[in-house]
Nucleic acid binder design. Sequence first.
DNA 1: CGCCTTATTGATAATGATTGTCAAAACGAT
DNA 2: ATCGTTTTGACAATCATTATCAATAAGGCG
Lengths: 143, 143
Amino acid sequence: MNAAKSAPKRNTWQREAVREALGESDGFISAQSLFSTLRDGGSPIGLATVYRALSSLAVEGEADSLQSPDGESLYRACSSTSHHHHLICRNCGLTVEIEADPVEEWAQKVASANGFTQPQHVVDVFGLCRDCSATDRVVKAAD
Amino acid sequence: MNAAKSAPKRNTWQREAVREALGESDGFISAQSLFSTLRDGGSPIGLATVYRALSSLAVEGEADSLQSPDGESLYRACSSTSHHHHLICRNCGLTVEIEADPVEEWAQKVASANGFTQPQHVVDVFGLCRDCSATDRVVKAAD
DNA sequence: CGCCTTATTGATAATGATTGTCAAAACGAT
DNA sequence: ATCGTTTTGACAATCATTATCAATAAGGCG
């Protein structure tokens, strides 16, 4: 296909601000939250811009994105550009990047075994991290 | 706390209609789609009711729910109450229930390796089913 | 160093899914 | 059939995200 119609990306302090704010954050954060954070920090950045920057970063592989159980898109600075997944503490939000080679293979295999092509997969593990496991305080009770 | 404040569930044709429509559907379907389908079928059911019925069924375990890459909540009649995952055509919605033993193990292993307990995982594979792969219609190009 | 082209921004409107509201209708036991 | 409660449904209200579009600024060029 076309090698790269790549629209000549420009460098703006806005994009940089988003990139940095993402880096500051410990775990996944929503566009709205990031926007608030930046604004609180005095940045006059616009909401739409934050959304654009985030999805842009996500596409470029500089950020990871997933959807909260409420359907919100959450973002996180991506340390490695390679494909990976996450282990997330459902109590404190601590996130660990994990590799999932076995799963990659499995996904491919299952997909083709059923005649599916272009498989993409959503693989995330939620649990309680060491600390939260120790403390049995449970935040929102598993009904 | 109270063992089960379980509100005395009543039987309405609406809930039944939703349950049945879910069964008819081949794959995951959104509340909006299900609503349209029912309306097209002549049912005067209300939109809010469909939403309520679906989340109710999901809670009771009669339906599975997941979120499309766009953040929409999708539902599907749950055939087996046992743990399983899905292979979903992102074009036509065809869904195949799949087992993921290797993944179950992997999730367990990775979780404990990082000190996490009570691991739960979200594992779903999206792709193009055989038919949709053949017809090159759609496929909004994988950029 | 200024100019020019064009990507980017940002305030705001628009969209779209989902939930809340609340009076009216339906369910189920009596 | 009657009564107390649950459920419904039309519609407003939320909320996140995207589209609009004029104004701004980034980068290349002379």
